[in-house]
Nucleic acid binder design. Structure first.
Lengths: 349, 349
DNA sequence: GTGAAAGCGCTAACAG
DNA sequence: CTGTTAGCGCTTTCAC
């Protein structure tokens, strides 16, 4: 069963290795009868082309590298799933590297993947500035698409959700449901998700209340910060907490529950991303759902485009519109009672 | 910056490709002065060995395939993280394939990975029986380690948590905290996690109450089933629900809350796995924590052992003991008030 | 201690 | 249409 080569198939089918190669790759026309014999022999022997040899010869491994900051970030598993499926559908295999939020490790992984002759790279940068050099260097060698986060302007093609549009959806929903004293629990730093969501809040919240744009507390994208942030902003007695992601929102809900504050009665809470936990918490978190399958498909499309030769075209930066998912954390139950159907929406095994 | 080969390094350093290869691989003694010059040239040129060529020549790609059923299963991201780190530490790269719980897709991925000359495979089988043929065939070609789930006896080395010991921890804890009318919300089927946890419950629950081993409801490992299962068993008025995993436990908590049942006052709820959500739900779920880093390390060790030649040794089946994590879902708050420290334990970004 | 040369399995000219 | 041949970049005898 092991290691049957082109030569073996050639011997059994009674023709040359070149012919066998042509039949199997479909590169050039081959006599019908010969082709049949070859295919038969290949099948019988259980022939599998050696991809290493093919790669060495053809300068293409059919492999792409996927580098991400933390697979345990609850937003990424779904993205990884869709990306691997999209790439496998194109016949490519995925080399995965988790750099553990460390730009230095990230640079090493990128270099290692390049030495393994990946045809292209998909990178979710660990850091807006400190990932830049390695990413730019890699982008000079192979097609590279950035996802989810940026790392400075003009580095490579990129695909991400439209954070500004997402924030606007949230603010519109809160306005429509009568909330006025909104405040923002966000993340500091220059990462695109942090900065864009923060900026969109600042730009849009004024329409609800002149004081809102200044009611902002900044930490990081964690549950712990969500808990702590509530204590910072609660003295201002807001009627809505707009959180920069779902983890912050879940932390906020926990702290509010401890304080005995009614959600959504006294205060509404919203998140961003729609991670699985957002649907499972009690109350369910109203949030902005990223179009994960479409993000993955766009990234795969860009990669395929670059791989098929169009390497000189203009850099593409694709933003996809997210959708609002309304759950109980923002909607008085007399308006929208918790329904089974809604809670079932969680894409969890 | 692109494509500098051994020959380039040889030319610049003024010696033969053979010598350069020996210096860089450290295969054989080389003159100190020559070695220095070679290393200098390699550095200056930014030489990176072409792994495809190395693979073709040396019959080793330094690559292992990781095949899993569903990366979105909340237990797997942490495992993938630890596995990739452990393998990268050994200088190996990881080809990831998510087969979406489909044994047919799984077989295709395994075949594809083999044709890409992976040195070894790490497989979490999608199905106890239907994964068997493909896994056994692959195990005949390369070292293969099964993780988390089995697929019939005697197929390959395997690493998993000791489900029986975990269930015993839960039952002991419930007994110690005075619960007697326990019942089990489990999963049907022959998958090892389902069968072993079910079996351990049946074997151990009799010590609490003669009727307990029969108070069993079987579905699947989902939140939805957890909700539905409560309605099946609640008429028996249990004082503890032992769930086969955390998702079931979370579903059960949701339904109990809807019914207005006090947890842990009227009924205790326990889970298994300790996924991130278990720490974040309210109340936090008492559960059995799988020793994920150690499981990954053992798998990597087995792989390294087989790869270093010991391919004929006896098959190894490694079981690691889990630990009980006590949270509020099983402990009256007057005994163990919800503490910040405990809730912070969640390994979430 | 070092170099020359033979391939690993495959594809792509180049002949026929 | 098909066969012969020359490598892809590297490791590894085998000579020196």
């Amino acid at each position: 069963m092991a290691d049957v080569t082109l030569r073996d198939v050639a011997r059994v089918s009674g023709c040359s290795v070149a012919t066998v190669s042509r039949v199997l790759a479909g590169t050039r026309p081959v006599g019908a009868e010969t082709a049949r014999r070859v295919r038969e022999a290949a099948d019988a022997l259980g022939y599998r082309p050696n991809q290493a040899a093919r790669a060495l010869r053809g300068r293409s491994t059919g492999t792409v590298g996927l580098v991400l900051p933390q697979i345990t970030n609850p937003f990424y598993p779904a993205l990884v799933r869709e990306l691997t499926h999209a790439l496998h559908a194109d016949g490519r295999a995925v080399l995965l590297a988790d750099c553990d939020d460390d730009p230095v490790a990230e640079a090493e992984y990128v270099a290692d993947l390049l030495s393994r002759q990946v045809d292209a790279l998909l990178v979710i940068p660990a850091h807006e500035e400190r990932s830049r050099a390695a990413v730019a260097a890699a982008a000079a060698r192979v097609p590279l698409v950035l996802m989810d986060r940026g790392c400075g302007p003009g580095v490579a093609d990129s695909v991400a959700v439209d954070n500004t549009a997402g924030m606007a959806l949230v603010l519109d929903h809160l306005a429509a449901t009568g909330r006025r004293r909104v405040c923002f629990l966000g993340a500091a730093g220059t990462a695109s998700a942090a900065a864009e969501r923060r900026g969109a809040y600042a730009a849009g919240a004024g329409a609800l209340d002149p004081g809102a744009p200044e009611r902002v507390a900044l930490g990081d994208f964690s549950v712990e910060w969500g808990r702590a942030a509530v204590d910072e902003v609660w003295p201002a007695r807001p009627d809505a907490l707009v959180c920069a992601n779902d983890l912050i929102a879940i932390g906020a809900l926990q702290r509010l529950q401890q304080l005995g504050v009614a959600v959504p009665g006294e205060v509404a809470v919203t998140g961003f991303d729609d991670i699985p936990m957002a649907a499972l918490s009690a109350p369910g978190v109203t949030t902005v759902r990223q179009p994960v399958p479409e993000l993955a498909a766009e990234a795969a499309r860009l990669l395929a485009l670059r791989l098929s030769g169009d390497n000189s075209g203009p850099q593409r930066s694709i933003r996809l519109a997210p959708a609002l998912v309304i759950r109980e954390s923002s909607t008085p139950s007399r308006l929208t009672p918790p329904r089974r159907a809604e809670r079932n929406a969680a894409p969890v095994t």
